[in-house]
């Protein structure tokens, strides 16, 4: 075990990749880049799986198998997500993630309820325009 790759190298690499992925998901406004962040996080996990598989010398290679599953799922996910992104671009004309706020829970203000409820409802029904 002495001449093998130290475990902390791939772990640090995975950490860095995961952190970059989280940063990308949380901060980037472009949906495609957000998806790339997600991919980075998934692959960071894959590195972890493979590293621990090798470290524990697993005879059935559960880690590597799981990594293969993750890759397959990631491929499916990215296909679906890109399709959604495509739809969003078609309907909204942009793929800015933080501008897609139609699902915000935005009812009438509580203070003077009732009087202008209809107006608020009408406003809420209108799709939000890009800022």
């Amino acid at each position: 075990m002495g001449d093998s790759l130290p475990l902390w190298w791939p772990l640090v690499l995975a950490c860095v990749l995961f952190a970059i992925g989280v940063y990308g998901v949380l901060v980037r406004r472009n949906a495609v880049l957000v998806l790339m962040g997600v991919e980075l996080m998934l692959n960071a996990v894959n590195i972890n799986l493979v590293a621990f598989d090798a470290y524990f010398r697993d005879v059935v290679h559960g880690g590597q198998t799981l990594a293969l599953f993750v890759i397959v799922i990631a491929a499916a996910e990215i296909g679906l997500a890109l399709a959604i992104v495509l739809r969003v671009f078609r309907t909204h004309g942009h793929i800015e993630v933080d501008a897609l706020r139609e699902l915000a829970d935005r009812d009438e203000p509580p203070a003077d309820a009732g009087a202008d409820r209809l107006d608020d409802r009408a406003e809420a029904d209108q799709p939000q325009e890009a800022r």
Partner: peptide, 15 residues
């Protein structure tokens, strides 16, 4: 009113 306070968290911004 309480609902209104809680609703402020629901901005619609996924991030």
């Amino acid at each position: 009113g309480l609902g209104w306070v809680l609703r402020q968290a629901q901005t619609g911004n996924v991030q």
